[in-house]
Simulated scan of single mutants.
Amino acid sequence: MRAFITGANRGLGLELTRQYLQRGDTVFAAVRQPAEATELHELEQAYSDRLYIVPLDVTQENSIRSAVQAVAATTDGLEILLNNAGVYPHAGSGDAQQRLGQLTAEDAVETMMVNAIGPLLVAQALLPLLRAGRKARIISLSSGYGSLTWKASGDPYHYSASKAAMNMYMRSLAADIGHMGLISVVVDPGWMRTDMGGAHATQDPADSARGIIRLAEQLHAEENGSFVTWQGQPVPW
């Protein structure tokens, strides 16, 4: 199995990278600042034959093209794309900047670029490698905040809107790639104890990672375009 994981330097991305490597898979770990990815470099020492650290800024098309070229120079195909890179502007889920009265265009654009547009552009650029892989899957990490049905609060405005936008992009993508034998789904990984989720979160990233990996392996064609939890339960749009 060959996996490309964005935002692989911390939190869920790092845990997904670790678990795929422990299984014996090959991982292309994409990070914006490779020099600062200390834990990822520690993994690289243990799995130097199967871990490739790839510089990637998902908001920059030149960076996306360079990352794809780096992967293509090493392998002829991919089985998994995990769109994990995401941003929650400022301090994280306890910050007030996404509440009415504090909203700015700058925060809105940054959040939309990283959380919605970036994943779509990465998937588009990697499509030839995914089509060359074996039954490739695109797993894009969303959030319960991205559900219009579940949305019952104002805050966080930008994060919620960006995840809802990503859901639509990936639903659209699913319609185009289904006939290619590929599957695209969006997954709510739960409220995790990460830099973004904060210390009070209830979910261990290791549990979410295990569930997501299992989910990716068990996907069937009829599930293409779905929105599910890390445990495989449907999430309302």
Results as ranks from 00 to 15, higher is better:
Ile5Trp: 09
Thr6Asp: 04
Gly7Cys: 09
Ala8His: 05
Ala8Gly: 11
Asn9Cys: 07
Leu12Cys: 06
Leu12His: 00
Leu16Ile: 05
Gln19Cys: 04
Arg23Cys: 03
Gly24Glu: 03
Asp25Phe: 00
Phe28Pro: 03
Phe28Leu: 03
Phe28Val: 06
Val31Phe: 02
Pro34Met: 10
Glu39Lys: 13
Glu39Gly: 12
Glu39Met: 10
His41Ala: 14
Leu43Ser: 02
Gln45Trp: 01
Ala46Val: 06
Tyr52Pro: 00
Pro55Ser: 07
Asp57Leu: 02
Asp57Thr: 14
Val58Tyr: 10
Thr59Trp: 11
Thr59Phe: 08
Gln60Ser: 13
Arg65Trp: 06
Arg65Tyr: 11
Ala67Pro: 01
Val68His: 03
Ala70Trp: 05
Ala72Lys: 01
Asp76Lys: 09
Gly77His: 02
Gly77Ile: 09
Leu78Gly: 04
Ile80Phe: 01
Gly86Asp: 11
Ala91Leu: 15
Ser93Gly: 10
Gln98Phe: 11
Gln98Arg: 12
Ala105Gln: 15
Glu106Asn: 09
Asp107Phe: 09
Asp107Arg: 07
Val109Cys: 05
Met112Pro: 09
Gly118Thr: 01
Leu121Ile: 08
Ala125Pro: 13
Ala125Thr: 03
Leu127Glu: 12
Leu127Thr: 09
Leu129Ala: 05
Ala132Pro: 14
Ala132Gly: 08
Ala136Trp: 11
Ala136Lys: 07
Ala136Tyr: 05
Ile138Tyr: 04
Ser140Leu: 03
Ser140Val: 04
Ser142Ile: 00
Gly144Gln: 04
Leu148Ile: 15
Leu148Ala: 08
Trp150Ile: 06
Gly154Glu: 02
Asp155Ala: 15
Asp155Glu: 15
Pro156Ile: 06
Pro156Cys: 07
Tyr157Met: 12
Lys163Asp: 14
Ala164Pro: 02
Ala165Glu: 13
Asn167Tyr: 09
Tyr169Thr: 05
Ser172Asp: 15
Ser172Phe: 06
Ala175Phe: 14
Gly178Gln: 12
Met180Ile: 02
Ile183Glu: 12
Ser184Pro: 02
Asp188Gln: 07
Asp188Glu: 14
Gly190Arg: 10
Asp195Asn: 10
Gly197Gln: 14
Gly198Trp: 10
Gly198Asp: 15
Gly198Met: 14
Ala206Thr: 10
Asp207Tyr: 01
Ser208Pro: 01
Ile213Lys: 06
Arg214Gly: 08
Asn224Ser: 15
Asn224Gln: 09
Ser226Glu: 08
Ser226Lys: 03
Thr229Val: 08
Trp230Gly: 07
Gln231Gly: 07
Gln233Met: 06
Pro236Arg: 08
